[in-house]
Design a binder for these strands. Structure first.
Length: 289
DNA sequence: CGGGACTCCTGAGGGC
DNA sequence: TGCCCTCAGGAGTCCC
């Protein structure tokens, strides 16, 4: 579900809510996520203080006052809920107030803090995961050590892009979604970036002209930043840790718009949907070359 | 190296 | 009400 902007929104709200809190107890309702949760490692969080939260690509990293790192990936439906209430029944009313009562059964892990607040990891499809790494070498973990540059960073630039695609014949959309090339884009934003750049998802990267690469880089940064500003995209069930939905989906220009008229005012074509590498791809046959 | 098919899992929505 | 099918913000593996 969540791509870079959504994970960034979660990271920022976690920072302002659970940073510096002490963990009192951890409850595991389901160990079988994408990878089996280590019960012993998770319960060792008891007594620790959360010192820092970082985002890398679509991963969240939690740092503590001990040399361990908790690595979390939200998969398609992973969510955190922060419950800022000491009343025992508040969890139920929190879900009910947000019309999420049917989601209660997908609470997989609950972290209770000493101040009686709690953080819930909720994940319908269980494609997310929670892993524990050593602080001294966590960057060498295979999830992290093959990642490309952050799309919003300076390393994602014209020179990098050109040298990477060097004569490769892959589809441009596939490469944008390849975390080894650039880390954090997913299906929605890859579609949106290519629409704004006026490039067809099926263009082979080696045919991209300099000015087209420039446009892709420009719109990648612009669209991601804009989405973060809007609180991310909530097409089905993404929400931040207070249950608040994002609003960037209102700004989608192609994603999910099959058979609808192109959003460029001077175009009267209809948006086409096709399957590329098993993922839905949307584009305007007239505007995107 | 690359493409394509398939996998994990659960729920929503459409057609009949 | 139910059944069956397809689809979903991800990403890993296996086979050719």
């Amino acid at each position: 579900m969540p791509e870079l902007p959504e994970v960034e929104v979660v990271k920022r709200s976690l920072e302002s809510s659970i940073q510096n809190l002490f963990i009192k107890r951890v409850k595991i309702n389901e160990v079988n996520l994408r990878y089996k949760i280590s019960h012993s490692k998770l319960t060792k969080l008891t007594g620790l203080k959360i010192k820092k939260i970082e985002r890398r690509s679509k991963f969240l990293l939690f740092f503590f006052n001990k040399p361990i790192v908790m690595l979390v990936h939200l998969g398609m439906t992973g969510k955190f809920f922060f419950i800022n209430q000491k009343n025992k029944k508040f969890k139920t009313s929190f879900y009910y107030n947000l019309n999420l009562e049917k989601d209660i059964k997908h609470d997989r892990v609950i972290i209770f803090f000493k101040n009686k607040q709690r953080l819930i990891y909720n994940d319908v499809r269980k494609f997310g995961f929670i892993k524990f790494l050593q602080l001294s070498n966590y960057k060498e973990n295979f999830h992290l050590n093959n990642l490309g540059p952050e799309p919003l960073g300076g390393n994602f630039n014209q020179n990098y892009f050109k040298s990477y695609i060097n004569n490769r014949s892959r589809f441009v959309k596939d490469i944008l979604m390849d975390q080894r090339f650039v880390a954090g884009l997913g299906n929605i934003y890859a579609n949106e970036i290519l629409f704004s750049s006026k490039i067809k998802p099926t263009r082979k990267v080696k045919t991209l002209k300099d000015n087209e690469i420039k446009k892709i880089i420009f719109f990648t940064k612009k669209i991601l930043k804009n989405s973060i500003k809007f609180g991310g995209s909530s097409i089905k069930d993404f929400s931040s840790i207070n249950g608040k939905k994002g609003n960037f989906q209102q700004n989608f220009k192609v994603y999910g718009r099959k058979d609808q008229i192109c959003s460029n005012s001077d175009c009267n074509s209809y948006i086409i949907k096709l399957n590329l590498s098993n993922r839905a791809s949307f584009y305007c046959p007239k505007c995107q070359k």
